[in-house]
Amino acid sequence: MSDFQFSDDERALQQVAAEVAREVYAPLADDLEERHEPLPEQEVARLADLGFLGICIPEEFGGAGAPLTDALIVVEELAKVCRPAAFQVFEANVGPARVLEFFGTPEQQQAFLPLVPTGAMTMAIGISEPDAGSAATDMRTSARIEGDEVVIRGTKRWISNGGHATHYLVYCRFDDVPGAKGIGAVVVPADAPGLTYGARERLMGWKGIPSADLYLDDVRVPLDNLAVPAGGFRDLFGVFSIERLGNSTMSLALGQAALDKATAYVQERKAFGRTIVEFQSVQQTLADMKLQVDAARLLIRRAAVNAGTGLPDTLEVSLAKCFANEMGKKVTDWGMQLFGGNGYTVEYGMERLHRDAHGWAIAGGTPAIQRTRIASELVGRGFSQRPESAVRA
């Protein structure tokens, strides 16, 4: 069977996820959007009962041990109608908890991973800082080891699920060692003394996905919470490639939802005495939307299938994320144009798809950063974006 075709099991999973999305989470989406609230705890519990939070978690820790493709199928179906619901499956299956699966100690795996499939633990990632976004290795959040504790000090910005997650995987710099060599990651509980949160960010989209700064004022956690020691930056971003495929799938879902809405709308809306799908310009736009969505899907599918239950190829991921992020913005914009004035109203839901699409194109490494990565892989060498004086220093 071709890797591009769903297996019978995958199609059955897709049908279940689509039904749950349609019957349970679609009716919640408008309310969560209006109130800027994350998914209620009882609905997170429902996702856990369905097995959606443990799709990729190994069986010995209570998950299904399924390949990444399965999680992405569920994420897409939920994200078409309710991003806050999809985000819960996203965090559990492609988020920072997977770092512990691949590089954590046996003790960390036993302590944390069984909590993920049940929904008892949600782990958010803390990478970006006020002066370190795309240039992640500029991060200043510091960590030092004192006896049997790690002491962390700094600020993390744009933390999705910030102030709402139960744990954070905080990237930090150990002992002031410069560059990537000094960066590792520590698991920080949400109630750790010295950890406080900024006001919830007011974003143009993502209304049901909280985002807030983290302030770490000499936060002390057990040394056992050191997930990846200094020098493990490459390992951390190897696992982050999984999250980038989840991000790509969120963009894919938005594009597919826009295409579905537009396809139905243009066959109902009339102008000049006929349905607007009969106009060639509308046909051309629909065709372009379909081309973009399918191309994104194939790039994501290739990277996910090739990854299996392991880590994906970083080049394949960058290609998928770059294209899917830009596709999401373009296709949702074209959808708004096909809806005309109705597309600019909240009632029809197209403008929400467009607003959310812009967020996924920023999160997890912008298309510009992905293009640099793609070029680097093509020519077999890295490219520093820093001034020569900074590189020499």
Results as ranks from 00 to 15, higher is better:
Leu214Cys: 08
Tyr265Ser: 08
Leu72Phe: 09
Tyr25Gln: 00
Ala296Asn: 03
Lys181Asn: 06
Ser211Lys: 12
Ala296Thr: 04
Gln15Ile: 15
Glu59Pro: 00
Phe383Arg: 00
Gly273Tyr: 01
Gly382Glu: 10
Ile369His: 10
Leu319His: 02
Glu91Gly: 03
Asp260Arg: 02
His167Asn: 13
Phe87Ala: 07
Ala227Arg: 04
Gly154Gln: 01
Arg173Gly: 01
Ile57Pro: 02
Thr122Trp: 05
Lys270Phe: 09
Gly65Met: 06
Glu76Asp: 04
Val20Gly: 06
Cys172Asp: 00
Leu315Gln: 09
Gln256Glu: 10
Gln108Trp: 07
Gly54Cys: 07
Ile374Met: 09
Glu377Val: 06
Ser389Val: 13
Lys330Arg: 14
Leu252Thr: 07
Ala212Ile: 11
Glu388Gly: 03
Glu326Met: 14
Cys56Ile: 00
Tyr168His: 14
Glu149Ala: 07
Arg35Glu: 07
Gly62Arg: 13
Leu286Asp: 06
Ser248Thr: 04
Thr141Ala: 06
Gly65His: 07
Val75Arg: 00
Ile152Ala: 03
Ala258Val: 11
Phe6Cys: 08
Leu115Phe: 13
Gln5Asn: 07
Gly341Cys: 10
Gly359Ala: 14
His164Val: 14
Arg98Gln: 08
Arg301Ile: 00
Leu203Trp: 11
Val170Pro: 01
Asp148Trp: 01
Glu129Tyr: 02
Gly182Asn: 05
Val151Asp: 01
Thr372Pro: 09
Thr137Val: 07
Leu311Thr: 09
Glu34Phe: 09
Ala21Arg: 02
Ile276Asn: 03
Leu291Ala: 15
Gly184Thr: 00
Asp176Val: 00
Glu107Trp: 10
Phe87Gly: 00
Asp218Trp: 00
Glu388Tyr: 11
Glu347Arg: 15
Val228Asp: 01
Thr141Arg: 04
Gln337Met: 15
Leu47Thr: 04
Ile145Cys: 06
Ala357His: 05
Asp70Ser: 11
Pro229His: 10
Gly205Ile: 04
Ala86Phe: 00
Val24Tyr: 02
Thr275Trp: 07
Ala26His: 12
Asn342Lys: 15
Pro114Ser: 14
Arg140His: 08
Asn247Ala: 14
Phe52Arg: 02
Glu351Phe: 05
Ala212Arg: 04
Gly335Ala: 05
Met327Phe: 15
Val266Thr: 05
Met204Arg: 15
Glu60Pro: 03
Glu201Val: 13
Ala64Ser: 10
Ser2Cys: 04
